[in-house]
Design a protein around this nucleic acid. Sequence first.
RNA 1: GGGGCCAUCGUCUAGGGGUUAGGACGUCGCCCUUUCACGGCGAUAACACGGGUUCGAAUCCCGUUGGCCCUACCA
Length: 483
Amino acid sequence: MSKPVVTRFAPSPTGMLHIGGVRTALFCWLYARRHNGTFILRVEDTDLTRSTDDNIRIIEEGMEWVGLDWDEGPIPGDANAYRGPHGPYRQMLRMDLYRAKIAELLDKGLAYRCRCSREELDERRKEAEKEGRSFLYDGRCRDKHWDATVPAAIRLRMPDAGDIVLEDLVKGTITVPASSLDDWIIARQDGTPTYNFCVVVDDVDMGVSHVVRGDDHVANTPKQIVLYKALGYDLPAFAHVPMILGKDKQKLSKRHGAASITEFRDLGFLPAAVRLTLAKLGWTPKLDGKAAESAEEELLTDEQLTACFDLGEIQKAAAVFDLDKLTWVNQKLIQRLDWTEIEPHLRWQWRMRGLEEAWTAKSDDWKALAIGCNKNRTTLKEIADTLAFLFKRPETFEEGPVAKFMTAAVKPALKEVMELEDYGHDALKAGIEAILARHGFKLKDLAQALRVAFTGGVVSPPIFDTMALLGRDEVSARLLPWI
RNA sequence: GGGGCCAUCGUCUAGGGGUUAGGACGUCGCCCUUUCACGGCGAUAACACGGGUUCGAAUCCCGUUGGCCCUACCA
């Protein structure tokens, strides 16, 4: 019986929730779910100047929206509340633990006070650079045994020789010569612990079995490994996942269309589509041991992803995020989901348009039809865009289409449309066809004229659906000005 | 400068000594069509470079180039 699987996502609340972070969180989540383990959300808010409660909310909301539920961590909405036996889950609230561990290291002589001032250090660093040497702290305070009467930074004693080996689940074995690492600072002069120290202490305290994080932390890991050992801890498994890049191979940012998870929500993507796309970015699910061999097989459910997820299969190289692929996945999901599964997500689009109430007021049948006749759209935003005309009459009419379709010949037919009474799909179709036959029109001629009257342009769902959605009264009202 | 990591179509990838180097997105073309779309069919395109090892290298080894990370009393 091996140790229970515990993973954690530990963002710092310094701004938006980046899609790269979400992917890392997704891998943690997938792995924990796969092994019936625990997924923890921990807030690394030791950067006092940049961390805010609002930013913590942004993280919580982003995680909730994208569907990554955490077993332990903060409870959304209440800055001090949390669930789980290892809390609190905000580092600022865990200072006592850090201090105790630092004292322990000091007592054992595994760490020491360093009175070298920042200025001195900077100077020595500059000098080294000038001579083309790399600067490493020379450990001159190691055996000074300074007492605590003068504020001092605290450094961890690092081995002088040998190699430090990191067995990484995704990168493989990484060997770093100890000589390239110096005695690093675990606590600042003001007593606050540094990041590399807190993570280790927290990960151990929280029982994290698999440290899954961005590969920008690879180089920190050897330092942390020494700390694990100094503290007498067993090493967790490490998995450093590569970054996500934009089209230009630079770090993904808003310049690339979207980088923040909330932008993807606003753009009309389904959380499930974001999850699938992100999971498949840098990892190929192998259901029954086989990678997808057709478009159909690319579309996996969370259950399928969970069933075959493995940290060891994650790609080593960074990957470029492709919005087109997300869009395609999103469209496929819209196509195959039931309208009731789409509707909750569509609400956000209505809210952004100030139409949430108008939408909510509609009947289920109406909503089913509205969503049903838009199964060919790529995003929820598009669905809302093409449906918005139902809630408000057009204010302007496109010149070209008006000239082309609102001909004198078509107007009598329009008038006949107004007289149609049965709006059931088949009856409506029969009624329209009769009108067409009478005037010798093609459906296209009439349909486009109707669209102009209904929407001001030439784009709408299929015309019979459009009329059913509008209802007889509204159809008449919008046709009246044209006859 | 030092240490580390990485490298298959435009993009995400499969493959890991012998394959016509497979799939997906995109792009292009054709078909369908009641607008916008969807859909169907087809096409396009890749092993960074140079040396080894080997009967044989996209696959193994070394080097080069390029990209990225770390090198903070940031996280």
